[in-house]
């Protein structure tokens, strides 16, 4: 029983990080139809910004915020200056995001150097919690709570605010939304900024747990992609459900079929692609 609890708990907490990363990716794809390969690198750069902030101020929560904001600004600039010109050119947009991956990876080497670094979470989060026979890392619980709150906030934003409904309209059909008086360029910037914010923030959140090192971007990115492909692009509900699935399947897969660690994750994705290309909660294409 504890065994299962531990495994599910681990899966859910990993799903939490995947959700934060995937949600941004999903929003960006849903609204702008951009496959943003830079997203994993945003995650990594965000972690570095968070690290620098933590070193300067000693405040972990400020680090999370600054990591997110820095990447949001960067994302908005990239969107305004580059991606906007390429609207409608799907391939050009993907290729240019790859260009930014390489440039940013190099920038990391220049600015922060090749050293692997770790980041300490506040003391009260670094402990081990215990309920009966079930012990769990506090930090993982924190991640789950954080992701849940974020999801709730996003849900509120999407369904209860005016901007949120514009975003939703844009996910459904950009042209129609534009016709209905939604200011599409602003929505694009907003969505890209929000997506980037989530990526940068999740990088800082993951840092105390995963460490910060070159290469982390492409180690984590596939999980986010699987989540949005399975969940359906642009769908909050899809991202939540699929991220949890990714976390749990990855956990159980590694536990029971360690030799097929990635396969247990990619195979369900392929099956869903074959049966329902738009994902579990995506709109049919």
């Amino acid at each position: 029983m504890t065994f299962w609890l531990t495994q599910i708990f681990n899966g859910v907490s990993y799903g939490a990080i995947v959700f934060l990363l995937a949600m941004g990716l999903s929003l960006i794809f849903g609204v702008m139809k951009v496959i943003n390969v830079t997203h994993g690198t945003y995650f990594l750069v965000g972690a570095y910004f968070g690290l620098t902030t933590l070193k300067q101020t000693g405040n972990f929560f400020l680090a999370i915020l600054i990591g997110g904001i820095a990447i949001a600004v960067m994302g908005i600039v990239i969107e305004r200056v580059f991606l906007r010109r390429l609207q409608g050119n799907d391939l050009g947009q993907v290729l240019i995001t790859m260009g930014f991956v390489l440039v940013l990876q190099d920038a990391i080497l220049v600015i922060w150097g090749p050293d692997p670094v770790s980041m300490d979470a506040p003391k009260f989060l670094a402990s081990t919690g215990r309920i009966g026979g079930f012990s769990f890392p506090m930090y993982r619980l924190f991640l789950i709570v954080f992701a849940a709150v974020t999801a709730a906030a996003l849900w509120f934003f999407e369904s209860r605010t005016k901007i949120g409904s514009s975003v939703r309209a844009a996910v459904d059909d950009v042209e129609m939304a534009g016709g209905m008086g939604v200011n599409v360029p602003v929505v694009f910037s907003l969505v890209f900024g929000l997506g980037s914010f989530l990526a940068g923030m999740s990088g800082v959140l993951a840092a105390p747990w995963l460490g910060i090192q070159a290469g982390l971007d492409f180690e984590i990115l596939p999980f986010a992609f699987v989540a949005i492909i399975v969940g359906g692009m642009g769908s909050l509900k899809g991202a939540v459900v699929a991220s949890l699935l990714v976390g749990i399947i990855d956990n159980l897969g590694k536990t029971f079929f360690p030799e097929f660690a990635y396969f247990t994750l990619f195979l369900p994705m392929a099956v869903i692609l074959a049966i329902r290309p738009s994902g579990l909660f995506g709109r049919a294409m």
Partner: peptide, 17 residues
């Protein structure tokens, strides 16, 4: 005996075992 991919991000499942 456990072997895990070098780019493993989450070791939770292995540790749990």
């Amino acid at each position: 005996k456990m072997y895990m991919p070098i780019n493993t991000v989450d070791y939770g499942p292995y540790i749990g075992k």
